[in-house]
Design a protein around this nucleic acid. Structure first.
Lengths: 223, 223
DNA sequence: CAGGCTTTGTAACATAATTCACAAACTCGG
DNA sequence: CCGAGTTTGTGAATTATGTTACAAAGCCTG
């Protein structure tokens, strides 16, 4: 599909810089790894093997090692990986070693729920710093400590506030329009909750969260 | 055992109960097809080719045909597919030709947002018919027209109300517990919003919706 | 109603992702 | 500091998924 994108330039001395195609699934698993490592770290455990890491996620240990191998050599033969070190390095690879700045477009039901998701978001290093809506009655004040502006000013605010990722929870029908605006403002990553396919230039990455599809496909497996 | 765990990781093809091996991705695309077909149907268009259907979703036309071929022969050479007929048949395959009955566990922020998602859900043939929470203050009345019961009565209600799918939006930490209860009550499909892996027997299907992972992986692709 | 045109369904091919398997690297107890 | 025991990192094999290509089927125009 339109998933083929360049990878980020290396920000650390790992061989990731040149590797042109890392499977999307690998990236998602990296994210899972950090979560497990976080837990282990909390329990005061200092080292972990690919086997243990895999078991915690239902993955083959070779897959864990191979995933990590995309980015360098982090392990010690005969010992495994140092939990904290590995966690730090993966976070650095993912770019979540600093706070990721999110904007929310569409302060409806789902949008507000996302605004109140602060606990989880905070813990994972994200922060919703601004929201937008087309309804003038919702604009002006704050919701859950987040200022809400009118979409007509979105471009300006997105730039000024150095937004990394836009979350779309607008009504179906205006999603593409809003997307175009965001991209004009320099946004390159979108998390789309609207059940509509977005047409975007190649340098823009869209992830879809589609509840209806999840439910429909679950329905298939009912028996 | 390993198979079971692997299944829970959520991203790989699992041997579905009866149908030998239809890729999970195929099922999700079927769901997308119905959406496109719905739109075409609305516009009064009566036939559609695999090319057109694919174009609408950014897919290769052969993939569309192959996906459909898993389930039979629906098309007419030289003509394409009859929109309404195809839609009906796919819905029948997915089991969404009747209302799918959902239960929501955890009436927090996200849970309430899902309860208010009625418009979209209704349109797609789902219905949240009951909700549960552990907080006695939330229990008893209705939220968005949906009765809320205490989790301690969950098993009974799930059975009595013939629930198909359980949506989990409970606080991290109790997800596994709630899952076990639901499975004891005969539930075989779970949509899990909690950022935690669920251990379930083989016959139970779990789909994960994990916002943090979506954001983290988007973060990777930034610049 | 014949023949050119279109589009299906699928077999063969191509690509991608995962798992296996093992040499090499390192640990650690004694 | 040696040797038995682990565990890594990675080619090779396997499995899964997607694409190409085309014969067969059916439409439709003249």
């Amino acid at each position: 599909m339109l998933d083929e994108l360049r990878n980020q330039a290396g920000e650390d001395p790992s061989p990731s810089a040149d590797n042109p195609k890392i499977p999307k699934a690998v990236i998602k698993r990296l994210s899972l790894y950090t979560r497990v490592l976080q837990k282990f770290s909390m329990s005061g455990i200092e080292k972990i093997s690919s086997k243990e890491l895999g078991d915690a996620l239902g993955l083959n240990s070779a897959q864990v090692r191979k995933d990590l191998a995309y980015f360098g050599q982090f392990g010690v033969p005969g010992l495994g990986y140092y939990v904290e070190e590995l966690r730090t390095r993966i976070k650095s690879i993912l770019g979540t070693d600093r706070t990721v700045r999110l904007a929310l477009v569409g302060v409806g039901n789902l949008g507000q729920a996302l605004l109140s998701y602060t606990t989880q978001f905070q813990r994972d290093g994200f922060r919703v710093v601004v929201a937008f809506d087309a309804d003038k009655r919702k604009v002006g004040g704050e919701r859950m400590g987040v200022p809400v502006f009118h979409v007509s000013d979105m471009g300006r605010h997105l730039k000024e506030m150095a937004i990394d990722i836009v979350m779309l929870t607008v009504p179906a029908g205006v999603a593409q329009q809003v997307t175009d605006l965001a991209i004009q403002a320099g946004i390159t990553a979108i998390l789309n909750f609207v059940p509509e396919r977005l047409l975007v230039p190649e340098h823009v990455k869209v992830h879809y969260v589609d509840l209806s599809i999840e439910i429909e496909s679950l329905s298939y497996y009912l028996k």
